[in-house]
Amino acid sequence: MNVGFIGTGSMGSILIESFLRSGALLPENITASNRSHWKAERLSEMYPGLCAAKSNAEVIAESEIVFLCVKPGEYKPVIDEIGAIVQPSHILVSITSPVLVRHLEELLPCKIAKVVPSITNYVCSGATLCVYGSRIGSADRELLERLFRHMSEPIEIEEDYTRVASDLSSCGPAFLAFFIQQFIHAAVAETGIPKIDAERLASEMTLGTGKLLTSGKFTPDALRERVSVPGGITAEGIRLMDQELHGMFDRLIQTTHKKYREDIEKVETMFFSTRVD
């Protein structure tokens, strides 16, 4: 199976490295391009056998599955470049949430899927969100999910829930890291504990908590109740957080959804502004 990548930026390179490190793909299975060609060449130097293509058209010609790993504003130029050579048999996988499946199905003749990865995939963990277009058959779906199972838990979602699912799965690591970072800073400032010790303790706590929540034995509610003894120190801390954070997560979801809607509008304007009804 030959797999192509158009775009080798942050998420594109994470996907490539995750597939290689997990054994899902070999370097010789991969053809990659980037508008800054040296970035693709750097990957080919790191992973001998990986082909650094000189054009996006070369990626299409050499691949059965093509991951489109560019920013929303770069989609239209790429589609204009590859539209005439994409075949119905190709599977094009978009990893950009504001670009909807219907946008791509209207412009390209191939099979379309949308996959939202997470930085946690880099350590072969976390979820990969999967949305399938109308041309994706059961065999195509199994092919993609078998590929992603090497480095994640592929979870099919409805496209209407892409944003909130991404908040939890893909943005969540950054949100959680921010919380942990603030926790560490406060611990150091208030007590003088060495930062390196606080970081180690917080990191090990995060790892252990994740294992508890994914082991099937604890839900978040059950874990909180198990640790928080009524009248104890943990319960007092939770009481404070409940007061201070009241409504904050609602506003967080509202903020990400507002930005998502704005991004979709920009994509639709970019793709279809010249259409004549």
Rank of each mutant, 00 (worst) to 15 (best):
F19M: 14
L20M: 12
R21T: 14
G23D: 13
G23I: 09
A24K: 00
I30S: 06
A32H: 03
S33N: 14
S33R: 04
S36Q: 02
A40Y: 06
L43F: 00
Y47A: 07
Y47D: 04
K54T: 01
I82K: 06
A84M: 03
Q87M: 08
L92M: 12
H103N: 11
H103Y: 04
E105A: 01
E106N: 09
L108T: 10
K114N: 00
T120K: 06
N121E: 12
V123M: 05
G126T: 01
A127E: 13
A127I: 12
G133V: 06
I136N: 14
D140N: 09
E142S: 12
E145H: 06
R149N: 07
M151S: 10
S152G: 03
E153N: 12
D160H: 09
D160N: 10
Y161E: 10
T162F: 13
S166P: 05
L168Y: 14
Q181A: 09
I184R: 01
K195D: 13
R200E: 07
A202K: 08
S203M: 13
S203N: 11
G210L: 10
G210T: 13
L212V: 08
T214P: 00
V227H: 03
V227C: 04
V229L: 06
G231H: 08
G232R: 15
T234M: 12
G237E: 11
R239T: 05
M241N: 06
M241K: 09
E244M: 11
E244C: 08
L245F: 14
D250W: 10
D250M: 10
R251C: 02
R261I: 11
E262V: 05
I264L: 03
E265W: 02
E268L: 04
T269C: 04
S273R: 11
T274N: 11
